[in-house]
Amino acid sequence: MNRMSSQQVPSSLRDILADILEISPEEVTPETGVGTIENWDSFRHLQAILAIEGEYGVQFDPSRIAELTTVSLIQAELAAKGAAL
């Protein structure tokens, strides 16, 4: 199976996650998530969500927030909210 690449993540989202998780942007791929990055704990998750909401001007439903555990899930939720990535 081909490893997914960071090129598949919109650069603005990639950079935010890299900053918040303190990893390099290249490490952020669609399948990056709570299980794959040690730093990605529940507080970084909240922090990332808040940063993403601020960047794209959207608000997630709190009951969905805990489920957005990978980059691709976040990306899909943003798209569903009509955010311009």
Binding site: I16, D19, I20, E22, Q47, L50, A51, G54, E55
Partner: peptide, 8 residues
Amino acid sequence: SKPSDVVF
């Protein structure tokens, strides 16, 4: 005031 810049 981007949170990502603050975390950085």
